[in-house]
Computed example of a mutant assay.
Amino acid sequence: MKVNDSSEEDFILAGFSEYPQAEFLLSLFVFGFYAVTLSGNTAIILVSLLDSRLHTPMYFFLRNLSFLDMCFTTCIVPQMLTNVLGGSKKISYVGCVVQYSVALALGSTECVLLAVMAVDRYVAVCWPLRYATIMHQQICHLFAAISWLSGFANSLFQSSLAIVLPLCGHRWVDHFLCEVLVIIKLSCVDTGPVESKMFIARLIILVVPVSIILTSYACIARAVVKTQSAEGRQKAFGTCASHLVVVSLFYGTIMFMYLQPKSNYSQNQGKVLALFYTVVAPTLNPLIYTLRNKDVKRAIRKVIWKDSV
């Protein structure tokens, strides 16, 4: 399909334009979730910094996750709302490249960061007496740096493959964001070799962290089974439950979306799944950690009580 009203440097993000009334309601829904994402994750970052009892490796990684989630949604939602509420569906070529590169980098970083957080929970449950020695400040910063660097390296690799592909005239993108796999479909050359390389990169950035997470929790489960006291089991479960829920939401959506056969893929299904992991999941993360975590709830009450005095 040709797009006559776009300049050579513009893409048209179709979004959910085939349902104009639903698209407006959806934009209000997205705005509400975006506001909760920003406020919820900002609250977690501030509370974990202000309460000295939360100056632990677990909350250091949680701050990284909260900051990452805010950046991820900010990379996508403002442009989406501008396109819906402003009436124009355009995004510049440079804006499109920046969006899919940054979104891919942050999504990849979250994959690795969740694996790092699983390792942290493994050390906390299986090596409690040596936890402070093993997970010292330098190793935490190293793990965080590895997460961010590997995420951006994966994005650099995949984005460099996509950016050199020549585009075919039309720039109609059947999505609400510039997503690298959707953009390369606009190319007028055979993209099979490029897609194969990208698939291998996605496989590595997904399967390696998942393997680490599964191994960590297998060891945790074995340690919990050996625990004699019910209180010990409950404490171990409490320290891991929130992370497991977040991992299940994130990886379940991503793997279903990116690793399923092309024959089973539906563009509308892809848009709905993308809406979930770019808008809904970052909102749920602070709620999950807050509602299930007594330390965070106590710290929030402490900060609120201080401010009210």
Rank of each mutant, 00 (worst) to 15 (best):
I44W: 00
L177T: 13
A103P: 01
A35Q: 09
M58N: 10
A218R: 14
I163A: 09
K235Y: 02
C168E: 12
S6N: 11
L65F: 08
Q21K: 11
G252Y: 02
L28R: 07
S159N: 02
F29L: 13
L244C: 13
S101I: 02
L177Q: 11
V123A: 06
I76N: 07
V116G: 05
V309D: 12
K90V: 10
E8H: 02
G95R: 04
A221V: 05
S211A: 15
A201T: 04
V102T: 09
E110K: 15
L287Q: 08
Q79C: 06
G192E: 14
V3S: 06
Y289L: 07
I91W: 00
C75K: 00
H243K: 00
R130Q: 15
L181A: 10
V47R: 01
A105F: 04
N4C: 10
V36G: 01
K302W: 04
S155N: 06
L129I: 13
L156E: 06
L85F: 14
L62M: 07
D190P: 00
S263P: 04
A281H: 14
G192R: 13
G252M: 01
I220Y: 01
I304C: 12
F31Y: 10
N154V: 11
W148S: 06
S229G: 00
V303W: 03
I134V: 14
L38R: 06
V208I: 14
K262C: 11
R292E: 05
N154A: 12
V164M: 08
A115H: 02
I76V: 15
C168H: 14
S211H: 05
K297W: 00
S263Y: 09
E9H: 11
L129T: 15
Y289W: 08
N264A: 15
F72E: 10
V36C: 06
V189T: 12
I134Y: 08
E18V: 08
L129S: 15
I76G: 09
L275Y: 07
V207P: 05
N264S: 15
S155Y: 03
I213E: 04
E179T: 05
C168M: 10
